[in-house]
Simulated assay, not measured.
Amino acid sequence: MNAPDDNTAAKGPRGWWASPPRPGMQRFINPWEYSHLRAFGVTRIFGGSVAAAAGVVCLAYGVHGWAAFFLVIGALNLGGGYWYLTVDRSAPART
Score class of each variant (00 low, 15 high):
N7M: 04
A9M: 13
A9P: 01
A10Q: 06
K11Y: 15
K11G: 14
G12Q: 03
P13I: 12
P13M: 14
P13F: 14
P13R: 13
P13L: 15
R14Y: 10
G15Q: 11
G15D: 06
W16I: 07
W16R: 09
W17M: 07
A18W: 05
A18Q: 06
A18E: 13
A18R: 04
S19D: 13
S19F: 13
S19V: 15
P20Q: 02
P21A: 13
R22H: 03
R22E: 08
R22I: 04
P23I: 06
G24N: 12
F28I: 08
F28Y: 08
I29Q: 12
I29C: 02
N30M: 03
P31E: 03
W32H: 09
Y34V: 06
Y34A: 04
S35F: 11
H36A: 10
R38G: 11
A39S: 07
G41A: 01
G41L: 03
V42Q: 03
T43M: 13
R44D: 11
R44H: 05
I45F: 03
F46C: 13
G48N: 00
G48A: 06
S49Q: 05
S49H: 04
S49M: 12
S49C: 11
S49P: 00
V50F: 12
V50G: 10
A51P: 01
A51N: 10
A51I: 02
A52L: 15
A52Y: 11
A53D: 09
A53K: 00
A53W: 08
A53T: 12
G55H: 00
G55R: 00
G55F: 01
V56S: 07
V56W: 15
V57E: 15
V57G: 05
V57M: 12
V57F: 15
V57T: 15
C58T: 11
C58D: 13
C58Y: 15
L59G: 06
L59P: 07
L59F: 10
L59C: 09
A60R: 03
Y61V: 15
Y61D: 08
G62V: 00
V63N: 09
V63K: 10
V63E: 14
H64I: 08
G65C: 08
G65W: 05
G65V: 07
W66P: 03
A67E: 00
A68P: 00
A68V: 04
F69T: 01
F70T: 08
F70G: 02
F70N: 11
F70C: 08
L71K: 01
V72M: 12
V72Q: 01
V72N: 10
V72D: 07
I73D: 13
I73S: 12
G74K: 00
G74A: 13
G74T: 02
A75Q: 06
A75H: 01
L76Q: 12
L76F: 09
